[in-house]
Design a protein around this nucleic acid. Structure first.
Length: 852
RNA sequence: GCCCGAGUGGUGGAAUAGGUAGACACAAGGGACUUAAAAUCCCUCGGCUGGAAACGGCUGUGCCGGUUCGAUUCCGGCCUCGGGCACCA
C-alpha cells in the first residue's frame, strides 16, 4: 500500500464535503448564551468560535496563509473532537486597491479579477483540507454584505460619530488616496511605502476618539487573552496623557505698538513646573500667529520660517526627534500669571499643530527639548523642582531634570512635593478660570474616505438645497456600479460617472449628487466576524440570538501586523454597534494569537527577493498533510520560522513512517477505540509500557494544543509514540492482548494526528477497520491510572549534582529508598570523607544528599 | 531615548510548578539490507577528559553577581539581537 497523498486527500475532501462534516448549527437555540465550558452540565453542546483573519483575495495563498490557517484548523478540529459546536468560517476581504491596480495593468475589471481570485483561492484552501463551514462564506464586495455597512454608517452619522471635516490629510501620491493615521508607517504609505504628503481635503471621519477612554480601559480586560505586546502597542497608540490646560494672556512687550488681544492655551502634563516657564512656543499653524506678527519688524522673518516648514511638510519631510530644534521670535509676549513675568513667544518647528493646543510652554529646566531650545536662543532657565539631595544650578546644568522633587522658586508652593503641587496648581487654575484639568490623546479620528473606486460607497448625498443628506435606509444598498471603466491614472471613475453620482435628494426629492468617495476597506473588516455568526440573515445585519451564542470570538488568529489597525478599528466598531443596539458585547476577540512569519534564508518571503515558496508546489510534491504538519512542527506559532527543504522532508518522512506502520498492521488488528485497553488486563511488560506511553502522549498533546498552542511539542509526542510502536509492534502482534493494545494505540495515534494530518488519519482509520470517521472521534481520554508505572527512576544527587539513578518499585517506602540511595556505590564514593547533613527527598523524582 | 520580547548543541527547537539540560526533528557519522544507489530499519551525536570496556570526572543554557540543598527557570546589574513607539509638551 503506497502512500499517495494526492488521491487520498482528494478522496476525503470530497467525502467531508458530501457529508457536510464541518457544518455549524447556525440556527441557535432560543435560550442560547455564550457557553464555552466543556462540561456545561445542562446537556447543551458548548460552543467555540475559531476565527482566522480573512485574506485579501490576491489570487494565491502564500505560506503565511498556510501557517495562519493551519493553526486555526488544528484548533477547530481539536475543539470539535472535544465536543464543542465549532464555528470556523472563511471569507474574503475583497475590496481594495490591488484589484484596481490589476485592472489597470491587465485591463480586467476589478470585480472580475476579485471574483476569479476568490474562486482560485477557495480551491487552494479546500485543497489543504481546512475544515471551514463554506456555507457561511462572505465577501465584503458583495452588496448583501456592504449594505449593512452602509446602514451602520447611517447610524454613525445620526449619532454624530461620522462627520465631515476639512483638514490637512495624509495623501499617498502613488495610491491616489488619503490614508488614516494608522496607515502611515514612519511617514510612508502602509501599502506601497511611498512618502506620504499632506493635502487639504474634506473627508469623512469616524469619531473613534469618543471611545478612547473605553478602548484604553478595556485593554485591561483583554490582558490574559491577548499578547502583552499587542496590548502595549494599542496603549501607546491611544497615547493618553493626563495634565492641565493653562491660559497665557498676550501682553504688551517692550515698545509694543500692537494691540494685544486674546490668549494662548497650552497643554502640559507638568503644570507643577509652570513657575519655570520662561518662554512660549507655538506651531506655525497657530491661529493667533497672524495677529501676533502683523506689522511687527519680525513679520518677514517669521513668515519665511513658516513657509520653510510648510514646504518641508508638504514634501513629507516629517519632523523627527533628531531634527534640529529651531524657532523664530515673533516679537509678541504673553504673561505668566504665576510669576507675573513676560514670556517671549516663538514659532518653533517641534510644536505639533495637531496635538494638544498647538502651543507649548517652555520650561527649560525640566524638559530636555525646552532646555536645548533655551540654550540655543539664550533664554532664561529657572529651576523649580529640586531633586532630593542635590541642588540644580541653572548655569551649570547640562540637561533638564524631569524627575520628582521639592518645589522651589514657586511662591506659595515652595517646599511641597512636586506631585502635590501638580494637584494644587490644577485646583488654582480651575478656581481662577485660567485653565483646567484635561486629558490628551495621541489617537486621532479615523479618516475613512478613500478616493478610490473599488470600495463600499458612502451612503451620503449632497443637495444644493438641503446640504449633506444621508441616504434613506430603505434605499440601501447604494450599489457600486460594475459597468464602469477604470481610469489609467488610478483615479476613481465614480466622480465622472453620471449614472452613479446623479441622484435625487432623499429629503426634498430634488436633483442631487452622490458622495463618490468609498469607505476605507478597514471598515469592511471591522465587523465581518459578527456577520459570520449569521451570514445568511436576509433582512437584518445580525440575528441577536446568534451573536449571543457565538461572540466574542473565542480564538482569533492572525499576523501581528494588524496589532493596531484592524484590531483597534474592530474594537471600536463593536463598542459603537453595541451602543446602536445591535449587540451586547464590549470586545470582539476574547483571545488573540499572533502568529510569526514564514521566512526563507532569514528574510520575509517576497517576490522581489526571489525567496518565495509556493504552497501549491509543495502540496503537489508532498501533499497537504505534510505541508500542514511542517508549518506546525517547525516552531511554536508565535515565533518566526525559516522554511527549509530538509525540514519539510523530515515532516514527509514522518507522515510516511506512520503510513508504513499502519499499512503493516492492516487486517491484523481488531476494531478498537482510543485508550480502550486497561493496563491491569495485560500481562506483558511491552503491552503495559505501550499503554503507558499511549496515555502519556494523549495527556501531553491535549495539554499542548489546548492550553499552550504548542503544536510542535504535541506533534513531538506523536512522534515518540510512533518510534515506540515501531519497536514493539512485532512482539505485540503475536498475542491477543498485544493486538488489542496495538489497535488501541493506533486508534489513539490517528485521533491525535487527525487535527494535523486529517486526510491520512481518515484513510488509515478506515483501512484499519475502525468504525466511523477519525474526524468525528472524541479526543482520547487518558487515565491517570494507566500512567502509573510500577518501576520508576529516582535521581540521586549529592549536593545538587547528579551522581546516580535508582530503578525502584513505585511503592518503595521513602526510608528504604533513601537507604538504597546512600548505598549506591557512586554515591558512596562521593560521600567519602564527608558527613551527611540532610537527605532531601522529592517523592517519585529525586533524592538529594546534602553533605559537607 | 522610552516600552516590550528573545539569547540553550552544527541547525530548528524541548525542559508546563525551582528538581535528570538538550525531548522531538534536521544535518552529520557509523552499521544492516542491496550487485549498486535511493529508500528503509538500527546505532552514535554539547565540549574537554579518564578508561580496554563497563562506567566515570570536569565543564556547559549571552556576561557578572545574588538567593537556594539544587537556577535555562527567581532577584540585581550589564551585553547583544529582534519588534513597537518616537519632537505627544
Amino acid at each position: 500500500m503506497k502512500y499517495a497523498p494526492g488521491s487520498i486527500e482528494e478522496k476525503w475532501q470530497k467525502i467531508w464535503e458530501d457529508e457536510d462534516a464541518f457544518a455549524t448549527a447556525q440556527d441557535a437555540p432560543k435560550d442560547s448564551a455564550k457557553n464555552t465550558s466543556a462540561n456545561a452540565g445542562d446537556g447543551s453542546k458548548p460552543n467555540f468560535y475559531c476565527l482566522e483573519m480573512f485574506p485579501y483575495p490576491s489570487g494565491n495563498i502564500h505560506m503565511g496563509h498556510v501557517r495562519n490557517y493551519s493553526i486555526g484548523d488544528v484548533l477547530a478540529r481539536f475543539k470539535r473532537m472535544q465536543g464543542f459546536d465549532v464555528l470556523h468560517p472563511m471569507g474574503w476581504d475583497a475590496f481594495g486597491l490591488p484589484a484596481e491596480n490589476a485592472a489597470i495593468k491587465n485591463n480586467i475589471h476589478p470585480a472580475k479579477w476579485t471574483y476569479s481570485n476568490m474562486a482560485a483561492m477557495k480551491k487552494q484552501l479546500q485543497r489543504l483540507g481546512y475544515s471551514y463551514d463554506w456555507k457561511v462564506e462572505i465577501a465584503t464586495c458583495h452588496p448583501e454584505y456592504y449594505r449593512w455597512e452602509q446602514l451602520f454608517f447611517l447610524h454613525f452619522y445620526e449619532k454624530g460619530l461620522a462627520y465631515r471635516k476639512k483638514a490637512a490629510q495624509n495623501w499617498c501620491p502613488k495610491c491616489n488616496t488619503v490614508l488614516a493615521n494608522e496607515q502611515v508607517i514612519e511617514g510612508l504609505c502602509w501599502r506601497c511605502d511611498s512618502q506620504v504628503q499632506q493635502k487639504d481635503l474634506t473627508q469623512w471621519f469616524m469619531r473613534i476618539t469618543d471611545y478612547a477612554e473605553e478602548l484604553l480601559a478595556d485593554l485591561d480586560k483583554l490582558g490574559a487573552g491577548w499578547p502583552e505586546r499587542v496590548v502595549t502597542m494599542q496603549r501607546n497608540w491611544l497615547g493618553k496623557s493626563v495634565g492641565a490646560e493653562i491660559e497665557f494672556k498676550l501682553a504688551q512687550g517692550e515698545g509694543g505698538k500692537n494691540k494685544e488681544e486674546g490668549s494662548i492655551k497650552v497643554f502640559t502634563t507638568r503644570q507643577d513646573t509652570v513657575f519655570g516657564a520662561t518662554f512660549m512656543s507655538v506651531s506655525c499653524e497657530h491661529p493667533l500667529l497672524d495677529q501676533m506678527i502683523a506689522g511687527r519688524s519680525q513679520e518677514a522673518e517669521v513668515r519665511a520660517f513658516v513657509e520653510e516648514l510648510r514646504i518641508a511638510a508638504a514634501a513629507g519631510a516629517v519632523g523627527a526627534e533628531t531634527d534640529e530644534k529651531k524657532g523664530v521670535f515673533t516679537g509678541a509676549y504673553c504673561k505668566n500669571a504665576f510669576t507675573g513675568e513676560l514670556m517671549p513667544i516663538y514659532v518653533a518647528n517641534f510644536v505639533l499643530a495637531g496635538y494638544g493646543t498647538g502651543a507649548v510652554m517652555g520650561v527649560p529646566a525640566h524638559d530636555q527639548r525646552d532646555f536645548d531650545f533655551a540654550r540655543k536662543y539664550k533664554l532664561p532657565i529657572r529651576v523649580v523642582v529640586q531633586p532630593d539631595g542635590e541642588a540644580l544650578n541653572p548655569d551649570s546644568m547640562e540637561q533638564a531634570y524631569d524627575g520628582p522633587g521639592r518645589m522651589v522658586n514657586s511662591g506659595l508652593y515652595n517646599d511641597s512635593k512636586n506631585e502635590e503641587a501638580k494637584v494644587r496648581i490644577a485646583d488654582w487654575l480651575e478656581d481662577n478660570k485660567l485653565g483646567k484639568r484635561t486629558v490628551n490623546w495621541k489617537l486621532r479620528d479615523w479618516n475613512i474616505s478613500r478616493q478610490r473606486y473599488w470600495g463600499a460607497p458612502i451612503p451620503i448625498v449632497y443637495c444644493e438645497k438641503c446640504g449633506v443628506v444621508p441616504e434613506k435606509p430603505e434605499n440601501l444598498p447604494v450599489v457600486l456600479p460594475l459597468d464602469v471603466q477604470t481610469l489609467p491614472d488610478g483615479r476613481s471613475p465614480l466622480p465622472e460617472d453620471p449614472n452613479f453620482y446623479r441622484c435625487t435628494c432623499p429629503k426634498c426629492g430634488g436633483e442631487a449628487r452622490r458622495e463618490t468617495d468609498t469607505m476605507d476597506t478597514f471598515v469592511d473588516s471591522s465587523w465581518y466576524f459578527a456577520r459570520f455568526a449569521c451570514a445568511r440573515e436576509k433582512d437584518r445585519p445580525f440575528d441577536p440570538e446568534a451573536l449571543k451564542k457565538w461572540l466574542p470570538v473565542d480564538q482569533y488568529i492572525g499576523g501581528v501586523e494588524h496589532a493596531i489597525l484592524h484590531l483597534l478599528y474592530s474594537r471600536f466598531f463593536v463598542k459603537a454597534l453595541r451602543d446602536f443596539g445591535y449587540m451586547q458585547l464590549d470586545e470582539p476577540f476574547a483571545n488573540l494569537l499572533t502568529q510569526g512569519m514564514v521566512l526563507m534564508g532569514g528574510a520575509k518571503m517576497s517576490k522581489s527577493k526571489g525567496n518565495v515558496v509556493s504552497p501549491t508546489e509543495m502540496i503537489e510534491k508532498y501533499g497537504a498533510d505534510t505541508v500542514r504538519l511542517f508549518c506546525l512542527f517547525a516552531a511554536p506559532p508565535e515565533r518566526d520560522f525559516d522554511w527549509t527543504e530538509s525540514g519539510i522532508d523530515g515532516a514527509y518522512r514522518f507522515v510516511q513512517r506512520v503510513w508504513r506502520l499502519a499499512a503493516d498492521l492492516i487486517g491484523k488488528l481488531p476494531p478498537a477505540l482510543a485508550c480502550s485497553v486497561d493496563p491491569a488486563a495485560v500481562s506483558s511488560e511491552a503491552a503495559r509500557e505501550t499503554i503507558y506511553r499511549e496515555h502519556a502522549a494523549v495527556k501531553k498533546a491535549g495539554d499542548d494544543i489546548n492550553n499552550r498552542f504548542q503544536f510542535n511539542t504535541a506533534i513531538a509526542a506523536t512522534m515518540e509514540m510512533v518510534n515506540h510502536l515501531y519497536l514493539v509492534k512485532d512482539e505485540l502482534s503475536d498475542s491477543e492482548e498485544g493486538r488489542k493494545t496495538l489497535a488501541s494505540s493506533m486508534a489513539t495515534l490517528l485521533c491525535m494526528l487527525a487535527p494535523f494530518t486529517p486526510h491520512m488519519s481518515e484513510e488509515l482509520w478506515q483501512a484499519l477497520g475502525f468504525a466511523g470517521r477519525a474526524t468525528h472521534q472524541p479526543w482520547p481520554v487518558y487515565s491517570d491510572k494507566a500512567m502509573q508505572r510500577s518501576i520508576i527512576t529516582v535521581v540521586v544527587q549529592v549536593n545538587g549534582k547528579l551522581r546516580g539513578k535508582l530503578e525502584v518499585a513505585a511503592d518503595t517506602p521513602a526510608a528504604e529508598l533513601e537507604k538504597a540511595a546512600l548505598a549506591e556505590p557512586n554515591i558512596k564514593r562521593h560521600l567519602e570523607g564527608l558527613s551527611v547533613k540532610k537527605v532531601l527527598h522529592v517523592p517519585g523524582k529525586l533524592i538529594n544528599v546534602i553533605a559537607s
